[in-house]
Every structure is written in structure tokens, then in C-alpha cells.
């Protein structure tokens, strides 16, 4: 356990100056900032629709969620899984990492958990910034109806679901980046996967949920459909979330065995 925590601490220490780390903070800040800015500057246009509190929150949060679930989160996951492993490929440091008196599983698990933490930070910031910027807009434009509805539960459910639905992609990309040192292979496969995921999800193929890359899109689509019913009762563990979780666990284990049997060149 000690091995795991010091490996995790080291992961943080060495990547705190890298883009993957800062992207987890900058991406949500920039996207939520831009949306809030848009809602602030075009408030008159939006106010004409006379949205109820809940509808306004729905419109406002889906601006971030839509772009986030479809593209940004999957791409960030690909980039981050690559970056966490590439820091060792690029500097040829796998050999030093694995010649430290730490068990191999701790080193591997710490890398994976670090990637998971970055993803968690990113989604948490999206949820938090959407929530807080809504109230900030309310303060700046008092005519808005954000105060009429508290979106805390529904927002946290949306983002939890999105996070869980992207874990499958994280595990696949993590293993691919562990095996290959170049950017193009994991990136290329990830890119094709995401496109295939979006297409299969949008054409409504009944087995689309089996493709991990389509899980975030599906998770969001289901939520927007069920939102019309009772938003707070949104189910988190739907079939695409289960597929994502099973895929994540399986590939995490597979990745470890690949690493265990591999010679460090």
C-alpha cells in the first residue's frame, strides 16, 4: 500500500508541469467560462424564451454537457492516458521506474489511478463550474430564473454517469499507450473508436452500448430523454455504464499482465 501511495505521489510530482495535468483544470474553466460569457452577453435573447428555472438549467448545462460528452471528454481521456504513459516512454524512464524497490502492481495501479484522478478532477470541475457559474449569472442578470431550481442532484448525476461511462475508454487507451510509445497508434485507434461510437450511438444501433467508445454519448442521450420525465430519478447504472465499468476492470487486469510479462527494453 505504501508503494502505491508513494508511486501516486511521484506521478503527481513529475506530471504537475505537463499539459495533461493542466488540461484537467484549464478545459473546464475555459469551456464553462465561454458558455457563461455567452449567456451573459446574450442574456436579452435568452430571456425572450421565458424558460422556467429547470428548463433554463437544462439549456445551460447541456451546452457544456453536449460538447463535453461527445467530444471533449473522450478526447481528453485519450490524450491523458497517452500522456501519463508517454512521460516514461519519452524519457526512457520505464527502466528506472521498474528498477526501484516498488512492486510492479503499485507502479501500474498508481499510474492508472492518477489518470482516474485527473478525469475525476476534470468532470468535477465541469459540474462545479456549471453550477456556480449559473448562480453567478443569476447575480449578474437578475432576470434569469436560475434560482428557481436547484440543479445540484441532477448535475452530479449527469457528470457521475459521464465519468463512469468514460472509464471503458480510459482503460483501453491506457493499455494501448502502455504498449506503444508513439502517439499515432493509440490516438488513431481512439479517434476511429470515438467516431464509430458517435455514429453507432446516433443511428440508434441496438448493440451500440457494447462499444465502449459510444458509452459517453449513449449515457447522455438516455439522460436527455429521461429528463423530460423525472430528472432527479435519473438512473446512473444503465447498461452502457455497466459495459464501460466491466471493460474498465477487464482491461485494467489485462494491462497489468501485459506489463508483468514484458521485458523493459
Amino acid at each position: 500500500m505504501r508503494s502505491f501511495f508513494i508511486s501516486l505521489q511521484s506521478e503527481f510530482y513529475k506530471s504537475r508541469k505537463t499539459l495533461a495535468f493542466w488540461a484537467a483544470i484549464i478545459v473546464p474553466v475555459v469551456i464553462c467560462g465561454l458558455i457563461a460569457f455567452g449567456y451573459f452577453t446574450s442574456s436579452e435573447k435568452i430571456l425572450k424564451y421565458n424558460y422556467s428555472g429547470m428548463m433554463l438549467w437544462f439549456q445551460y448545462s447541456s451546452a457544456a454537457l453536449g460538447v463535453m460528452g461527445m467530444l471533449i471528454l473522450p478526447f481528453y481521456v485519450i490524450f491523458m492516458a497517452f500522456s501519463v504513459n508517454n512521460i516514461e516512454h519519452k524519457n526512457d524512464t520505464w527502466k528506472t521506474l521498474f528498477s526501484q524497490p516498488l512492486n510492479k502492481f503499485s507502479i501500474y495501479a498508481a499510474k492508472y489511478v492518477y489518470a482516474l484522478i485527473l478525469l475525476l478532477v476534470c468532470t468535477f470541475l465541469f459540474a462545479f463550474l456549471t453550477y456556480s457559474s449559473g448562480y453567478l449569472l443569476q447575480a449578474l442578470v437578475p432576470k434569469y430564473t436560475f434560482q428557481d431550481y436547484n440543479p445540484a442532484i441532477i448535475l452530479s448525476k449527469f457528470y457521475t454517469k459521464l465519468l463512469l461511462a468514460s472509464l471503458g475508454i480510459l482503460s483501453i487507451q491506457f493499455v494501448l499507450s502502455l504498449i506503444w510509445s508513439d502517439f499515432l497508434k493509440p490516438m488513431g485507434i481512439g479517434f476511429i473508436g470515438i467516431i464509430a461510437g458517435i455514429i453507432t450511438a446516433n443511428v440508434g444501433w441496438k448493440h451500440a452500448y457494447l462499444i465502449p467508445y459510444s458509452n459517453p454519448t449513449l449515457a447522455l442521450r438516455m439522460t436527455s430523454a429521461s429528463k423530460k420525465a423525472k430528472p432527479e430519478e435519473l438512473p446512473i447504472f444503465t447498461q452502457e455504464v455497466w459495459v464501460s465499468l466491466i471493460c474498465a476492470v477487464l482491461l485494467f487486469i489485462v494491462g497489468y499482465f501485459i506489463l508483468l510479462k514484458r521485458n523493459i527494453k
Binding site: 524519457n91 526512457d92 527502466k95
Partner: peptide, 13 residues
């Protein structure tokens, strides 16, 4: 303690 081939160091640190 070891030094194998060219030293493995993190270039960004």
C-alpha cells in the same frame, strides 16, 4: 542503485 545506458531522466523537470 543503477545507471543503465544513457541516464533516464525527466527532461521537463
Amino acid at each position: 542503485g543503477s545507471l543503465v545506458e544513457q541516464p533516464a531522466i525527466y527532461a521537463h523537470l
